[in-house]
Design a protein around this nucleic acid. Structure first.
Length: 857
RNA sequence: GCUUGAGUGGUGAAAUUGGCAAACACGCCAGACUUAGGAUCUGGUGCCGCGAGGUUUAAGGGUUCGAGUCCCUUCUCAAGCACCA
């Protein structure tokens, strides 16, 4: 390349980006002899809008760390991929008729090009894409493992349905009664859906959190989301014979029960409402049903309810307890019924007051017993033989009593629900499942060596329609990947719910040979060993592919398994995971679930995927609001790169503020970092395009400059380790200001500075490095070593305070004794003025820093 | 409402265990070099005051020789949760 005199970032940046690609600078190879460092970014959804400034913030941060670790001698793995299934590509397909794969490929190409333009040191040979059949082959395979082990099932319970998106959503995807994507209203609807039994991992997911180096807020959020609560299940017999169960965390308050409240959706209501209450109850249920869930859970409104006319019998006292229906009881939590203890639960108290139900205090405390008394640090009163026990003791005693009466047991309840795992979309992984009639399933069960037994669960997964029961047959490894069929439309047809039902009949209806494992389109013929079935037409949610993508980076081309044993043995799990906090109870929970599960199968060496997690803050629009199209405050990073270059963009984003802070985009500051880079260039390259004469090989730097260099090495190193890139850049600027003031600087120091700069502004660093005569990439050179001896000062500055106020400063030799320093401090002219007419009552000396005289007038 | 964070110049922000508040940068002011400056360099820039000096980390109180940092109260903002029995 021509050695220009100007800082021509365009030429430089293109040149070094090509160099890294050709030299495979960032290609990582499994090498058990070297220490590894694996940095993981949350992979992006390749949207049509291209890379935005938030992506660049996180990816630059990890790139800086990766380049730094590489210079430190680590075998660094910094891969990238695409979370490419999802709604926008599908909507684009609906609008244009173009297959989503085409749109996805264009977007991916654009994202990759932009990432290269930012200068990210990515190992592109490990690029993965969740929509690649060779990738989702293993997503489907892991699903089948879950299926085989009884962790995937179908259910008809009411689920969140979003009419606008035309699909069901998981609990975690519903925020304040609206869809996470698009903020559309959702409603409850009963549909047959696939569900993953994440609750089976509730305890493991909770316990596993303890040892993770994650932001506290994120751990707390997951903990609350899992919402483990211990308590008891209490059975109340009804007067007329049936029984109902309630879950309670407070068995100690059992003797204070004065009513029972059922959720309006509770199935028992159909048969227990007495005749004279029939109309009131049904009117009430209709009224509640017309409200959205949001309205129902709105705290601003009071509680309401209606008496059913029926009574339950208290399991211990045999008292008659009225049964009510009340909207504050939620069907989807616990048993959908609660025991009302007004004296010790604020909601029950409010309800009892409103309907004049008895309030029986059964717990009292010495210092405060105003009702409702909801704390658990009291003792029991009015509770027969349990009176006098502490709450804790009573919880156990009452549960034991209930158990012996056969109407109670201890129980752990989770707020976490099983994970709704199917979507009514086209652009997702098809389920490798075929539904067959129960009678045909029996044939399969009878065939002991059927290939279809590979993923067959112990208990059949089935659903009924009319008089027929259908059972789920898992495809075998041989059938994977099950690719998406061509469809006539990406929208569900009238009367159907899924787009895949638009596929050819030859895809939808198939025949299986239970002996050979063969699978072919249905042709209406029957012969021995063949059974007929229908494909599952739901697809998996976008979270599926992101549940295990990080593992695929380790063996992206491996055919025999989702990851190669030797690769995962070497790389383990990421040393650092960087990505947005918005996935706290979505991706970060789901991926932990899958990883824990795969660990339990013995397929992974560790149970937790992400030991260390960091959330970069959101970059806000210039107006301080979240960037959004509707506010028109979305900024385009390309414009900055056009005008100032990628190195400036990187420095700018890192210099905006602490990485974890939300901070507004403030383009004025880009000038500062651009000037800094121009200054670096000018100091190294003279007007003829040659190395500046100021940089001299073999020159001995002044001690002060050497000290500045080593302070800079120390501060930059520490700042990178702690991801405090803004302060690292400030220190680089301080160094450069000092550099500028020197008449001559050693070649050695000039090189060391470039090495410190290289992770942040890699293009200019590489360019100057090579102009200084180096042949290899700057990142191959080992990171400068900090020498504390260079920073030892012979003279110390001691601040002199009087009564805590700074009055003067003195300079002393580093080896001066304490008493001599105190004496010198007293002599300091400005300080002496304040000491003259007073008596010193105390002298404080902080070694090497300050002296404080406490005086009295 | 509950939980958890945070609040420092005109702006983005710095500040090891409590030890010189405002580093670095933007902006602004003045100057130098220039035909020119959106290039570059030099100096200044928290607030009050001509000055000596005083004063300042949301507000108030406390602990301490000493508090941006620790404790208490209040206010504001952000995030999360929101009838979870």
């Amino acid at each position: 390349m021509a050695k220009t005199a100007e800082y021509n970032f365009k030429t430089i940046e293109t040149h070094w980006q090509n160099y890294w690609e050709e030299a495979k600078t960032f290609h990582a190879v499994t090498d058990s002899k070297r220490a590894k460092y694996w940095i993981l970014d949350m992979f992006p959804y390749p949207s049509g809008a291209g890379l935005h400034v938030g992506h660049i913030e996180g990816y630059t941060a990890t790139d800086i760390l990766g380049r730094y670790k590489k210079a430190q001698g680590f075998n660094v793995l910094h891969p990238m991929g695409w979370d490419a299934f999802g709604l926008p590509a599908e909507q684009h397909a609906i609008a244009t008729g173009l297959h989503p794969a085409i749109n996805t490929k264009n977007n991916v190409d654009n994202f990759r090009r932009q990432m290269k333009r930012v200068g990210l040191g990515i190992d592109w040979e490990r690029e993965i894409n969740t929509t690649d059949p060779e990738y989702f082959r293993w997503t489907q395979w892991i699903f089948l493992q879950l299926f085989k082990h009884g962790l995937a099932y179908v259910d008809q319970k009411p689920v969140w349905w979003c009419p606008k998106l035309g699909t069901v959503l998981a609990n975690e995807e519903v925020i304040d009664g609206k869809s996470e994507r698009g903020h559309y209203p959702v409603e409850r609807k009963a549909l047959r859906q696939w569900v993953l039994k994440i609750t089976a991992y509730g305890d493991k997911l909770l316990k596993g959190l303890e040892h993770l180096d994650w932001p506290d807020a994120t751990k707390r959020q997951q903990k609350l989301w899992i919402g483990r609560s211990e308590g008891g299940l209490v059975k109340f017999n009804l007067e007329q014979g049936q029984s109902l169960e309630v879950f309670t965390t407070r068995p100690d308050t059992l003797l204070g029960v004065s009513f029972i409240a059922l959720a309006p959706e509770h199935p028992l209501l159909k048969c227990i409402v007495t005749e004279d209450q029939q109309k009131a109850v049904s009117d009430y249920i209709t009224q509640v049903a017309s409200k959205s869930d949001l309205e129902r859970t709105d705290l601003a409104k009071g509680k309401s309810g209606v008496f059913t006319g029926s009574y339950a019998l208290h399991p211990i006292t045999q008292e008659r307890i009225p049964i009510w229906v009340a909207d504050y009881v939620l069907m989807y939590h616990g048993t959908g019924a609660v025991m009302g203890v007004p004296a010790h639960d604020s909601r029950d108290y409010e309800f009892a007051q409103m309907y004049h139900l008895p309030i029986k205090q059964v717990i009292a405390s010495n210092d405060d017993s105003t009702l409702p008394f909801c704390k658990t640090d009291g003792t029991l009163v009015n509770s027969q033989k349990f009176t006098g026990l502490t709450c804790e003791a009573a919880n156990k005693a009452i549960l034991t009593e209930l158990e012996s009466l056969g109407c109670g047991k201890t129980m752990v309840q989770y707020k976490l629900h099983d994970w709704l795992f199917s979507r009514q979309r086209y652009w997702g992984e098809p389920f490798p499942i075929v539904w067959v009639k129960k009678s045909d399933y029996a044939k399969l069960l009878a065939c002991k060596d059927s290939p279809f037994r590979e993923f067959l669960p112990e208990e059949a997964i089935s659903y009924s329609e009319g008089n027929e029961t259908f059972c789920a047959v898992p495809l075998t490894s041989q059938h994977l990947p099950l690719e998406l069929p061509k469809v006539s439309s990406y929208k569900p047809a009238e009367g159907s719910t899924t787009p895949l039902q638009n596929a050819e009949k030859t895809w939808l209806n198939v025949r299986l040979n239970i002996h050979t494992g063969e699978l072919c389109p249905e042709d209406g013929t029957t012969s021995e060993g063949w059974i007929s079935g229908m494909r599952e037409t739901n697809t998996m949610p976008q979270w599926a592919g992101s549940c295990w993508y990080y593992l695929r980076y380790l063996s992206p081309h491996y055919k025999q398994n989702f990851v190669a044993k030797e690769d995962v043995a070497y790389w383990g799990t990421p040393d650092l995971y960087v990505g947005g906090a918005e996935h706290a109870v979505l991706h970060l929970l789901y991926a932990r679930f899958w990883h824990n599960f795969l660990f339990d199968l013995g397929l992974l060496p560790t149970n937790e995927p992400f030991r260390k997690l960091f959330h970069p803050g959101i970059i806000l629009g210039p107006d301080g609001n979240k960037m959004s199209k509707s506010l028109g405050n979305v900024v385009n990073p390309n414009e900055v790169m056009d005008e100032y270059g990628a190195d400036s963009l990187r420095l700018y984003e890192m210099f905006l503020g602490p990485l974890e802070a939300s901070k507004p985009w403030n383009l004025q500051n880009v000038e500062g970092v651009f000037r800094f880079l121009k200054k670096v260039w000018r100091e190294y390259i003279n007007l003829d395009g040659e190395i500046s004469a100021k940089i001299q090989a073999g020159f001995h730097d002044t001690p002060a400059f050497e000290q500045l260099l080593h302070e800079t090495i120390s501060k930059v190193t520490e700042a990178i380790e702690n991801l405090r890139f803004n302060t690292a850049i400030a220190q680089l600027m301080i160094f450069m200001n000092g550099f500028q003031k020197e008449a001559t600087v050693s070649l050695d120091s000039a090189k060391k500075f470039l090495q410190l700069l290289a992770p942040f502004a890699p293009h200019i660093a590489e360019e100057l490095w090579s102009r200084l005569g180096e042949n290899a990439s700057i990142i191959e050179a080992s990171w400068p070593k900090f020498d504390p001896n260079k920073c030892v000062r012979s003279e110390l500055k001691i601040v002199v305070q009087v009564n805590g106020k700074v009055r003067d400063e003195i300079y002393v030799n580093a080896d001066t004794e304490k008493n001599a320093i105190l004496e010198a401090a007293k002599q300091a002219p400005k300080a002496a003025r304040y000491l003259q007419s007073s008596t010193i009552v105390k002298e404080i000396y902080v070694p090497g820093k300050l002296v404080n005289f406490v005086v009295k007038p």
